[in-house]
Simulated assay, not measured.
Amino acid sequence: MAVNLRGRHLLTLKHHTPYEIQFLLDLSRDLKNKKRAGIRGDLLAGKNVALIFEKPSTRTRCAFTVATIDEGGHPEYLGKNDIQLGHKEDVADTARVLGRMFDGIEFRGFKQSVVEDLAKFSGVPVWNGLTDQFHPTQVLADFLTIQEEFGTLKGIKLVYVGDGRNNMANSLMIGAAKMGMHFVIGSPKSLFPEDGLVAECRKIAQDCQSGAVIEVLDDPKAAVKGAHAVYTDVWASMGEEDKLAERKALLQPYQVNKELMAAIGREEAIFLHCLPAVKGYEVMEDVFESRCSRVFDEAENRMHTIKATMVASIGNL
């Protein structure tokens, strides 16, 4: 099936078909092989990319920067104190200015409405580098890592343990529904994902005929049983630091440690984390540094999947 992502935004994975997601993963693999062979490209030659960051970043900033330069483009970092976004100038006006100067815009910040308004008014492709609700570029990196490990996504059991309402749980659930995975959230009932999103993801799976299974459980050991991959994230996201003590008490049973990994019952299971990790909280050091950990493969894959996303939407293909 022919896939054309020219001019497309990446705000969440809701708007991409399974074929389009797989196309991005295949393109990521090809671009990764190209980089490892030492081949510099020109697929973004003459392209200027605005990188808007309200929140600090290691992987997202470096991935967008290196990916753009690798293919001959120019990235311009715009921190929260560098431009007037949301201060003296509303989002719509900023979007219209940047859209006349840049070929694509990345946004990493708080409100999903901001990235959606950038897409609405800029006239150029906009990519969500993280908001409080969704983190689609991370999911692409996660899926590339899983695909490299197991050769497929379909039928893979991916279990997320921790805060079941955060942007990673939301985004993984959407992606898993599209790609025919068995996705389980293991979380306290008070941190279960929104019922509406769970229902939407189950409908996505049905509409796509992907065969995906979506479950939400409050028993962490029951959740991880038979998992191919176990995923976690920080217990208090950026902006929620004041809730850390409360979350630590609530989420301690969901810590990824040797005991929880032993409950999987599958020898080849892997551990994933979007990073940065607070070791000793959501994951223990002996799991993070174990042979089952793929967190740094996953981190590297941010660059390859982000490169594929930009190339597919604004590249010289």
Score class of each variant (00 low, 15 high):
Pro18Trp: 08
Glu285Asp: 15
Glu71Phe: 15
Ala245Phe: 11
Val159Lys: 00
Asp163Glu: 14
Arg40Met: 12
Pro188Met: 06
Gly280Ser: 11
Lys243Trp: 01
Ile185Glu: 06
Asn33Gly: 11
Val91Lys: 12
Ala277Gly: 02
Arg61Asn: 05
Cys62Phe: 15
Gly211Ala: 05
Ser122Asp: 05
Ser293Trp: 04
Ala67Thr: 03
Arg36Trp: 14
Met238Tyr: 13
Asp195Trp: 07
Gly41Arg: 02
Ala45Val: 10
Arg6His: 10
Ser187Phe: 01
Asp207Pro: 02
Ala92Glu: 14
Met303Phe: 08
Ala2Asn: 06
Glu240Met: 10
His304Met: 07
Lys120Glu: 14
Ala2Phe: 06
Asp297Val: 07
Pro75Asp: 04
Glu54Arg: 13
Thr152Ser: 11
Ala312Glu: 05
Ala63Thr: 00
His135Lys: 08
His9Val: 03
Met310Glu: 05
Ala277Leu: 09
Phe64Ser: 04
Phe110Ile: 14
Lys243Arg: 13
Ala222Val: 01
Leu13Ile: 12
Ser210Pro: 00
Leu250Glu: 15
Lys225Val: 02
Lys120Val: 04
Arg247Val: 04
Ile264Val: 15
Ala229His: 09
Gly79Gln: 01
Leu260Val: 03
Met168His: 01
Ala236Met: 01
Ala141Gly: 06
Asp163Trp: 13
Met261Gln: 00
Glu148Lys: 00
Glu148Trp: 00
Val256Gly: 11
Thr137Pro: 02
Gln255Val: 12
Glu89Phe: 08
Arg266Asp: 03
Val126His: 03
Glu259Gly: 05
Lys307Arg: 15
Glu282Leu: 04
Pro220His: 03
Gly151Cys: 12
Arg96Gln: 13
Pro220Ile: 01
Gly186His: 03
Val126Ala: 01
Asp90His: 11
Asn48Cys: 11
Arg61Lys: 14
Asn81Arg: 15
Ser28Gln: 09
Arg108Ala: 14
Gly162Asn: 10
Glu116Arg: 09
Gly162Lys: 08
Cys201Lys: 02
Lys47Ile: 05
Asn81His: 14
Asn316Val: 03
Glu116Ala: 10
Lys189Leu: 10
Ala67Cys: 11
Arg247Lys: 07
Asp132His: 13
Ala299Gln: 08
Ala205Phe: 11
Glu300Gln: 14
Gly164Phe: 05
Pro18Tyr: 06
Lys34His: 07
Val91Trp: 11
Leu5Ile: 04
Val161Pro: 11
Asp163Val: 10
Ile105His: 06
Ile306Leu: 11
Ser190Ala: 13
Thr145Glu: 02
Leu217Ala: 13
Met168Tyr: 00
Leu78Thr: 07
Lys203His: 10
Arg61Asp: 02
Pro276Phe: 14
Ser190Glu: 15
Thr65Trp: 15
